[in-house]
Design a protein around this nucleic acid. Structure first.
Length: 552
RNA sequence: UGGGGUGUAGCCAAGGGGUAAGGCAACGGACUUUGACUCCGUCAUUCCGCUGGUUCAAAUCCAGCCAUCCCAGCCA
């Protein structure tokens, strides 16, 4: 919404680009965001999205979306749809939506070209044998016995692979590079494998699919990408990326630059673990408000601008890091504080009877929608003899520095009147059931003409005009910052109290008719967003984030 | 034990020979009809991973060391 447009901080990627521009390597800049459609986008992707789009923006270039769909067995259109929706929601307009699969013909031609150059060969070794031949960290690999097949034989075999003559895994096409390279990626990497699987975009046209290492540089080249930004784990792949482009004489070649991926403490961003959570019903779905997915955060009420701001604030570097979740929350609070209307709500109601208020009488009180933004106008709130306040806004025996309600103490009811607690009722168990107060009719609006001050201001909801709601409080889904990698133990890291449902919460009457996606600050209680599953009969409200509180 | 990266405050992160930006968190205080927000102040006085070296001057250059991350998918 009101995103403040400021100069984005410069980073090391810009230095590389400036250098390339200065050397005349490229005329204009083009980037791409290349997710594989095998899951929903999460906050880590948001960083990559922001980096790719803002880098292109900075140089007046374009950024495309490319669905990196070279492994059909794991992919699905459900994911491509969600990816497109999430990127748009984040506020980025890609110039084009492309699919790696739309380059399959081109990539295939490149493979043929490599074979003809004697730089690629069909290998009949099994997966295990290839692994064995590849060597180890300290031991060089050895050449495949099929490495020196003739160009004619390779061409014939590769064509027959493509025609579906062989079963899955029977043969692969490999680049002929160097089995003794210290970099495993250069030890004759597999570039095409047989997979008799229908592809979500190309159907049954192909039964051989290119590997990432082969498809990626060629897809970048096909799109005229100039800077291929990716995460650190692909650093070891760069020599191979460059090898393909060099051998295939692609000029100007796109340049790969790696940056550190985002790690957020208490968050799960591993796709495998996210699938585990969804598949086992531990969360309600990919958009469960506890998930670190874009859709989960959206449902939780995080504004897109806050996520963009977060990505700006964490910076871009190559250092491994774990960002504190509190920074994301700070961004969310900053945005919501500036944009959210305020309202009153009582999550745990305690009835208050104002004994000297006329029986059956009600009045309308005008309250600012946002005190800091008078231009947003006012709303009407009903005041009546019986109201509800928050249960913890009353203490029989006040602790030190407690300045809300306790017997004999006077407080202000926000925008309404000064009230003084005169007595309280309890049930057999000792639980306070009702408060009795007297009000000062002279203090309407919240100020006393005699100038006396009160230290506490309470939020309240009328007993005769309110909206009932179910409020969901979310805590961290994970207790431990970095759960172990094996799914067998992931359960022990899950916080069973990550979701608390509060029934029978009361909102001020004016909130009747609020809709999914509406966000409010319930004063002194935090920011809240109406859930997508919310209906008029069953109002479900997610707590987006708490307020900072200096009072414990 | 091979190769490729990275080490600046509790957490991110600028700075690339001239005397350590900024943000989050934290801690004081002011203000407040939200204990919010806002505002003011404090927060690396040769510990810029460590040890040496070069220099008038080093977080920045050099050497060695230490720590840590990534790589042996027909995943991306």
């Amino acid at each position: 919404m009101d995103e403040i447009i400021t100069e984005r901080p410069s980073n090391f990627i810009h230095d590389y680009i400036d250098e390339d521009l200065k050397n005349g390597v490229y005329d204009s800049i083009q980037t791409r965001f290349p997710p594989e459609p095998n899951g929903y986008l999460h906050i880590g992707h948001a960083k990559a999205i922001c980096i790719n789009f803002t880098t292109a923006q900075k140089y007046g270039g374009i950024c495309n979306l490319r669905l990196d769909d070279t492994n059909p067995g794991k992919e699905d259109v459900e994911y491509v749809d969600s990816i497109i929706e999430d990127i748009k929601w984040l506020g980025f307009d890609y110039a084009n939506a492309y699919y790696a699969s739309s380059y399959f013909d081109f990539i295939y031609e490149c493979a043929i070209k490599l074979i003809k150059m004697g730089k690629a060969y069909v290998c009949d070794l099994s997966a295990d044998e290839i692994k064995e031949y590849r060597g180890t960290l300290t031991q060089v690999g050895k050449n495949s016995p099929y490495r020196d097949r003739s160009v004619e034989e390779n061409l014939d075999l590769f064509e027959r692979m493509t025609n579906g003559e062989f079963p899955n895994a029977a043969r692969v096409l490999r680049a002929k590079i160097d089995m003794s390279s210290p970099n495993f990626n250069m030890r004759d990497p597999v570039i095409y494998r047989i997979a008799h699987i229908s592809h979500h975009q190309t159907g049954d046209k192909w039964c051989v699919y290119p590997m990432y290492d082969f498809a990626h540089p060629l897809s970048d080249a096909a799109e005229k990408v100039t800077h291929s930004l990716c995460s650190l784990e692909f650093e070891n792949h760069r020599p191979l990326y460059e090898w393909f482009l060099r051998e295939l004489e692609i000029v100007p070649a796109p340049r790969q630059i790696e940056f550190a991926r985002l790690n957020l403490n208490y968050c799960i961003t591993s796709k495998r673990k996210c699938h585990y959570l969804v598949d086992n019903g531990i969360v309600s779905g990919w958009d469960d408000p506890r998930m670190a997915t874009i859709s989960g955060m959206r449902r939780r009420g995080y504004p897109a601008a806050a996520i963009r701001d977060f990505c700006d604030r964490i910076g871009v570097s190559k250092a491994y890091s774990v960002v504190d979740y509190g920074l994301l929350e700070a961004c969310v609070r900053d945005n919501l504080n500036a944009n959210s209307p305020r309202a009153m709500a009582v999550l745990d109601p305690l009835k208050v009877i104002i004994d000297n208020y006329p029986e059956g009488h009600t009045e309308e009180i005008e309250v600012e929608v946002n005190q800091d933004k008078p231009e947003l106008g006012t709303r009407k709130v009903t005041f009546s003899k019986e109201i509800f306040v928050e249960r913890d806004d009353f203490m029989i025996e006040p602790v030190k520095k407690y300045f809300r309600l306790y017997p004999g103490n006077e407080v202000r009811l926000k925008s309404a009147y000064f009230v003084t607690c005169t007595s309280f009722e309890q049930d057999e168990s000792g639980k306070v059931t009702c408060l009795h107060c007297t009000y000062d009719p002279e203090s309407r609006g919240g100020n006393s003409p005699d100038g006396r001050k009160v230290k506490g201001t309470l939020h309240w909801v009328s007993a005769v005009d309110n909206v009932k709601a179910e409020i969901r409080l979310y805590d961290r889904l994970f207790k431990v910052e970095n759960p172990a990698n094996d799914d067998a133990t992931i359960d022990e890291y899950i916080n069973p109290n990550s979701l608390t449902v509060l029934k029978d919460c009361l909102l001020e009457g004016g909130l009747r008719g609020i809709k999914p996606g509406d966000t409010f600050q319930f004063m002194r209680k935090g920011y809240y967003c109406v859930d997508k599953d919310s209906t008029g009969d069953n109002l479900i409200i997610n707590r987006t984030v708490e307020l900072n509180s200096s009072w414990k």
